[in-house]
Design a protein around this nucleic acid. Structure first.
Length: 557
DNA sequence: TAGTTACTGGTGT
DNA sequence: CACACCAGT
């Protein structure tokens, strides 16, 4: 729960930009004949027409909803256009939408501090831009205000839909007899209108926006007037807004916490929280959450807009619901290979594009178990140091899975290698890469050099070429053999990690994968041996070794 | 036995 | 820290 800053006078100008039915827009740009038609994006068309994950506003008029199946949508809107999410490796491939989101971010980031909040949402801190505008060309000095800005919805402004609504908005935007904060807000509205037009021009995507003095209020209002509209929250309208706002509409209160506030405190609107002291809220919900609740009831939220244009993690997952549950190790391995392949590709893309490397690989699964008292037990997530290379990721993820499965089934001597096995099923799998850190610039060119397919040389033992970036020299570079390197320094554990799981490790892979290789078939066997736990150093530089067609990124101090 | 999937980010322990 | 759990889209 984000902490609120103590000051209640918050003069920042924060915008929350929300793309309108984003996946639909991406597909409509790709197939322009779909524009203006009731359209939905659907994934997995085989069962009841697939699940809708985005619905155009034309289709919403017919009552089509997200979470409908395709068949259902057809019933209420027979002419609906259903577009399938691209499929790759047997699973949904969301890359087109991620990339489209990046297009938007790259435009919005030009104007202020920009935080990519999700695939289709962005926060902007426009305080500096608004201050500059107020100083240099305040709204009342402009001879004309853009039509898009005049279409703003200003909360609390009377006559919202009257014939002279735009005139009212113009008056509000140009007021000179008001406090500094409201003038800044007017500048923010004009800036955001401009930005939204730039986004439309550059990407063909429309978006909606909320403009307020903090993130909470901006987020709350960005969706109030959709599509392709923006809403401004003057300070003077905050109390009325929150007094009537159902508690579940507030971000973070849509789940169990919101339910508890309703059931245990009898609070049904955000304003209803005002009757409780900060101490009372802290006693019941903890110091952080209690203070946060006390503040949001007053429209206070000091959470800052973080500078973040790129995701913090990458994940690839798939569910296997009901009868599709995976029941054999071999099928699990197959899907882990698919997921690992996609993840590896995205990591390579991130490395090339953004010069970042991930340091932790995590495997999540959901499972069920028959005929056991603790069959409700959750399948444990497992993580390990992330080694680049498709086959390594696949192998490591598979080993994580097996470690998790052993734990899940209990140590009752389950034979893991047996391919046909009953009593358990896997209903979901995902692999993710996290702890992504920037690598020093210049590394990218080295990567390209390697990726440009080095002539494949057989197992001649040659001196490794060593590339060093902004880093301390390696103790005895130039003469190590593969095995010497492996046991050289503690840091080398990262280069050649031996998966450490419950006191067991799996020997390093023997694959000949290089970066960004195409998918490889997983190997059947792997060795088990014991080892000490390894620690994961934070990188201050990166080295690349070339060893018998192996490209190994090494993090050193 | 997930039939709201496939992601994300955040907090708490 | 690794992991569980929550929340949102």
């Amino acid at each position: 729960m984000p902490l609120a800053r103590p000051e209640s006078l918050d003069s920042r100008i924060i915008a929350h930009i929300d793309m309108d039915c984003f996946y639909v827009q991406v597909e409509q740009r790709k197939q322009p004949h779909l524009r203006g038609l009731p359209t939905a994006v659907v994934q997995y068309n085989e069962w009841k027409g697939g699940a809708l994950i985005a619905v155009s506003y034309e289709a919403r008029k017919f009552g089509v909803k997200r979470s409908m199946r395709g068949d259902e949508a057809k019933q209420v809107c027979p002419q609906i256009q259903l577009v399938q999410v691209p499929v790759a490796r047997g699973k949904a491939d969301l890359n087109a939408y991620r990339n489209a989101g990046s297009e938007v971010v790259s435009i919005l980031a030009r104007k202020g501090r920009c935080e990519r909040a999700s695939i289709d949402e962005v926060y902007l801190d426009l305080t500096d831009s608004a201050e500059a505008m107020l100083k240099e060309s305040p709204p009342h000095s402009l001879e004309s205000i853009d039509a898009e800005a005049l279409k703003s919805h200003v909360l609390g402004l009377k006559n919202e839909n009257g014939h002279d609504a735009k005139e009212k908005v113009r008056e509000w935007l140009c007021r000179s007899d008001t406090d500094h904060r409201e003038k800044l807000l007017a500048c923010g509205a004009i800036i955001v209108a401009e930005l939204r037009m730039q986004v439309l021009k550059a990407t063909e995507f429309t978006c909606s926006a909320g403009i307020a003095h903090n993130k909470m209020l901006a987020k709350l209002t960005s969706g109030m007037n959709k599509p392709a509209q923006q809403t401004v929250v003057p300070f003077s309208s905050v109390k009325a807004l929150l007094d009537s706002l159902p508690i579940k509409k507030m971000k973070q209160l849509g789940g169990k916490l919101g339910t508890s506030l309703q059931n245990d405190l009898g609070v049904n609107t955000v304003g209803g929280l005002l009757q409780f002291s900060e101490e009372k809220l802290q006693d019941r919900y903890g110091i952080n959450t209690g203070t946060w609740l006390w503040n949001i009831a007053r429209g206070i939220n000091g959470e800052e807009v973080q500078v973040r244009l790129l995701p913090k993690s990458h994940g690839s997952g798939k569910s296997f619901p009901g009868p599709r549950a995976l029941k054999t190790i071999v099928s699990v391995q197959h899907w882990i290979n698919q997921l690992g392949d996609e993840l590896s590709e995205r990591l390579c893309f991130d490395l090339e594009q953004n010069k970042r490397m991930a340091h932790t690989l995590t495997l999540h699964a959901s499972a069920y178990k028959l005929s056991d008292s603790d069959s409700h037990k959750k399948f444990p997530s497992k993580s390990c140091p992330l080694r680049y290379g498709t086959a390594k990721i696949q192998e490591d993820a598979f080993n994580l899975f097996q470690a998790g499965l052993r734990e899940y089934l209990g140590s009752c001597g389950v034979k893991i290698q047996g391919s046909n096995h009953n009593g358990w099923g896997i209903t979901a799998l995902s692999v993710s890469a996290s702890k992504i850190v920037a690598v020093p610039s210049g590394t990218c060119s080295i990567m390209k050099y390697f990726q440009g397919q080095y002539p494949s040389h057989s197992s001649s033992k040659q001196t490794p070429d060593t590339f060093i970036q902004e880093s301390a020299p390696l103790s005895s570079s130039g003469t190590e053999s593969y095995s010497e390197l492996k046991s050289a320094e503690p840091q080398s554990d990262y280069n050649f990690p031996c998966l450490d799981l419950q006191g067991q490790k799996i020997s390093e892979s023997r694959d000949k994968d290089s970066f960004c290789s195409s998918p490889k078939q997983a190997k059947d066997g792997f060795a088990l041996e014991t080892s000490q736990p390894t620690s994961q150093p934070l990188p201050s530089g990166v080295i690349f070794f070339m060893l018998e067609q192996l490209v190994i990124p090494a993090v050193i101090f």
